[in-house]
Write a protein that binds this DNA or RNA. Structure first.
Lengths: 355, 355
DNA sequence: CCCAGCTCTGACAACGTTGTCCAGGCCTAT
DNA sequence: ATAGGCCTGGACAACGTTGTCAGAGCTGGG
């Protein structure tokens, strides 16, 4: 008869019988073993005052003996802060985002927070899914490198108190703190550099037009050309996927077209890499300036417009934590400068001017 | 008088008055608004059966109107699984670990889990601190790229059910699942490759000797030399920090010493990069094989022993989730092969043999 | 010698969710 | 018409922690 009755009525140990977390000891267990109250254990664990050295020692011994570790999930539930922030970026494997993420991590660490990363793979839907999953985990703050162009889905979260900072690209259809690189200025400077070295027919190969930086860099390219009074043929501009095949075709088209370009601005690191490969095979040397620095670019003599990925991450994270510390005020937009690093490919003169 | 009394005695809304999470609505609020029970909301949110379409619609409307999002912290506490795993690596900014982390993330995503990254900066203490912090968050599993050589601190955690897999380097003083690259074999092959091209005096510049892969690669180097019956001068071997200055000095010493080497095995990607820079300035060309592939190595013609970082991460993560799915059995050690990619620097013959 | 005041400790509720279990309503079959 | 079964919905406890509050024990001063 006893075995048909609900176990909770029969035995006093339903809790210990179906323990979660693979039978981990809880503060209650520690308290029992040390012969003290639950709250006293909590006090010891959190280093709160008001515990005699002797009691503290007994509790410490029990903790040691049981291998107890505080369950931060429960703590979070109680305290309302998770001491973790989320970072949604495009692809952690991209050498541009690794350092950015690392910089965010360092700032988070200085504030005692952990970092949860997620890669959107440049897919707006996946970005949203990730960001909302992070919100469901109740991260204290969110740093987003947008893949999509509509972030109204974050409005309830932001209203609910999730500090949010956008990096590298601006938020779409909402007003929020943003940290950007000066894509427009960088591209303009890069093209001006090529023009200064005598080039007149310059091409631009960029990322997909729904990506803000791609559009800005194109704007910068056009501005520099216009400033110099140079025309831009349609065939010299190509926005689209940064997949090697597409870039390869685009570059080949510009170099081998009826009005062949003598120089190229590559819209980001992936484009630069492919462009370098393609240009290594052309008969006439073609000048190249790449957006984003690359690891061995100095050895290859590639002229680049460098962004400071770590500074982007650091600045965004610092802004985030200032908000978490209660900083009020209107959302702010910060633009970090870029730096042109001449290394060779950007200083090659066009064929006509070559001696 | 009322305003001096504790609010909890005066009003019946202490809960709503000091809401956590910046006044986020809870299921209770949704239930009240929809005029249904708490559990019914839970059912709708989790897509459980047993709710009439009409009720479901009312609940959905309330959720929408309030901007409710489930609090996964509470869910975790109740369910005992966090659907998140932790990854402790050395430095997310290192181009070797970015792809590794991304591969882990993809596997985690396929299992509906999030990934929390942490960089140990090659500091054993920080590794431990991070790993234990992740355990306190009750990650379901842990992937560790060891910085230290004693992981007994993880024993209570592992016993408590945290699945743990070590990657890239073996665990110290505990028995655990491990996924490694074949450092020994890779180094041996690389050196054999140099010997096959006529080199007799070959140097090795590696990472600090407390790092397992550094020692293994050195072993591989020595094995290849011994196999060929070649002596190894003390001056040809250098283990230590991979900081550029140290590597620069080590390489310069080997190349400019009394018994100058004609070829070099670089122990990892950071060493390779510096070695390439130094060797670019030597009078006589020095052959080079580098451990780890680099982004633009093909353009620079650098011969490397490539590890598949993504495969390491993928394999480790898959093992982890198999354990989480209940796979029992002894800890297993998997070694993934490396691949020698000849691109030029490894095929340069020594000065004597040059035509 | 007693009491005020301090220090230390523990009981209890609450955080927001999910699992268990039961109640009531509706439908069908006799 | 009614018994029995099924379906829907809700009350309640529990997850492991921390904040609140009150009680116990001790000390020192009047």
């Amino acid at each position: 008869m006893a075995d048909t009755a609900p176990s909770s009525l029969v035995s006093g140990r339903p809790a210990s019988a179906r323990r979660r977390y693979g039978n981990r000891p809880t503060m209650k267990d520690v308290a029992a073993r040390a012969g003290v109250g639950l709250k006293t254990v909590s006090r010891v664990v959190n280093g709160e005052p008001g515990v005699t050295p002797d009691t503290e020692r007994r509790v410490q011994e029990a903790i040691e003996a049981l291998g107890f570790r505080r369950n931060d999930s429960a703590r979070v539930l109680r305290k309302g802060r998770t001491a973790s922030i989320g970072l949604v970026l495009e692809d952690l494997a991209d050498p541009f985002y690794g350092p950015l993420s690392r910089a965010v991590e360092e700032v988070a660490r200085a504030h005692g927070a952990l970092l949860i990363n997620g890669s959107s793979a440049e897919d707006p839907e996946r970005e949203q899914e990730l960001a909302l999953a992070l919100c469901a985990r109740r991260v204290d703050g969110l740093i987003v490198i947008p893949a999509g162009d509509d972030h109204r889905y974050l409005e309830p979260e932001i209203r609910a108190g999730v500090a949010t900072v956008f990096v590298d690209r601006p938020a779409g259809r909402i007003d929020a703190d943003t940290v950007l690189s000066d894509s427009f200025g960088g591209a303009r400077d890069g093209v001006a550099h090529l023009i200064a070295h005598g080039h007149r027919r310059i091409g631009f190969v960029g990322d997909q037009p729904r990506i803000h930086t791609a559009v800005e860099r194109l704007r910068g390219y056009r501005a520099a050309m216009a400033d110099a009074g140079l025309p831009v043929a349609d065939a010299w501009v190509s926005l689209g996927s940064t997949a090697p095949e597409r870039v390869r075709a685009a570059v080949a088209g510009m170099v081998g077209g009826p009005e062949p370009v003598t120089a190229l601005l590559a819209g980001n690191n992936r484009v630069t890499v492919t462009a370098v490969r393609v240009l290594a095979e052309t008969r006439e040397p073609v000048a190249l300036v790449g957006f984003d620095d690359l690891d061995l670019a100095d050895l290859l003599g590639i002229t680049v417009i460098a962004q400071d990925a770590a500074a982007l991450g650091r600045t965004a994270a610092e802004r985030l934590f200032r908000r978490l510390d209660g900083a009020a005020g209107e959302p702010r937009r910060v633009t970090l400068p870029t730096r042109l690093i001449p290394r060779g490919t950007g200083e090659t003169p066009p064929p006509g001017l070559r001696k």
